[in-house]
Structure formats: structure tokens, C-alpha cells
């Protein structure tokens, strides 16, 4: 599984990093981030690309999600 750390990155870099991983052919990615906005945007992108999103850690200042195709 690919790992992606987007903590502390401002909009829309987390989304772009995720998209880059998906475009490179990743089918399973573990993503770590910090802001609620990036959580919403990354999961929205993943769903729109046909991934299922499994949020594993969901705190206000840190989150982790697994996306799978």
C-alpha cells in the first residue's frame, strides 16, 4: 500500500498529491492529513475516482484514511 503524508499542506496540495498517486496507478493508498478541509476534499476526490474511503483516524486536527479501488 502506498503512503501519503499531506499534514500541514494547504489547499489544494493534498488533493493534488492524492490525484498524482491515483494517476500513477495506485489502487490502495493510506493518507494522513491534518485539516478538516483537506479530509473533505481528499475523500471527495477519492469517491469521484471510484475509490472506497475508509476513515481510520478522525480527530479535528489529525486524520488518516485508506482509499481502495
Amino acid at each position: 500500500m502506498d503512503k501519503l503524508d499531506v499534514r500541514g499542506l494547504s489547499c489544494p496540495v493534498p488533493v493534488l498529491r492524492t490525484k498524482k498517486a491515483i494517476d500513477a496507478g495506485a489502487t490502495e493508498v493510506l493518507i494522513m492529513g491534518s485539516s478538516q478541509v483537506s479530509k473533505e476534499n481528499v475523500s471527495k476526490l477519492a469517491v469521484s475516482q471510484g475509490f472506497t474511503v475508509n476513515i481510520k483516524v478522525d480527530n479535528k486536527d489529525i486524520w488518516e484514511m485508506e482509499i481502495k479501488k
Partner: peptide, 8 residues
Amino acid sequence: FNLGRAEY
């Protein structure tokens, strides 16, 4: 492009 990470 990226201005770098912010820290809590």
C-alpha cells in the same frame, strides 16, 4: 508548487 507545511 507548494509553500511548505504549516505546523499546529
